[in-house]
């Protein structure tokens, strides 16, 4: 639940999602769910020339399981908060 909660705090911020098929999409994080499925608005595909079919698409739903990375905005990450939350989560899982 740690990352679900974390990504909820990022809604409205710009992120870049890199998928396992090497497609990278930048957009405004609209919502996230418990599977870390992600919905982006105002999307822009990083390598647009290679994916012309996505020019007609402005928002998208990405299945959590196909995500490789999500690049996060620097100002949205509170590292101390993350450390505490991670320790708490580790204790609860044990």
């Amino acid at each position: 639940m740690l990352f679900y909660s974390f990504f909820k705090t990022l809604t409205g911020k710009e992120v870049t999602v890199e998928l396992k098929n090497d497609l990278a999409i930048t957009g405004i994080l609209h919502s996230v769910d418990q599977y870390l499925n992600i919905k982006l608005n105002e999307i822009k595909v990083v390598d647009e020339a290679k994916h012309p079919h996505l020019l007609a698409v402005k928002n998208c739903f990405i299945r959590g399981s196909v995500v490789r990375y999500i690049q996060l905005p620097q100002d949205a990450v509170d590292t101390d908060l993350l450390h505490d939350a991670t320790r708490r989560e580790a204790r609860n899982a044990a």
């Binding site: 998928l19 098929n21 497609l23 999409i25 999307i43 012309p52 079919h53 996505l54 020019l55 007609a56 698409v57 402005k58 928002n59 998208c60 739903f61 990405i62 299945r63 399981s65 196909v66």
Partner: peptide
């Protein structure tokens, strides 16, 4: 089937096909 879905995006009907294609 869900496990085969990578992404789904709403199609803007006005500019569905890029003019370069």
């Amino acid at each position: 089937r869900g496990e085969n879905v990578v992404m789904m995006g709403r199609v803007d009907e006005g500019r569905e096909i890029p003019s370069t294609l």
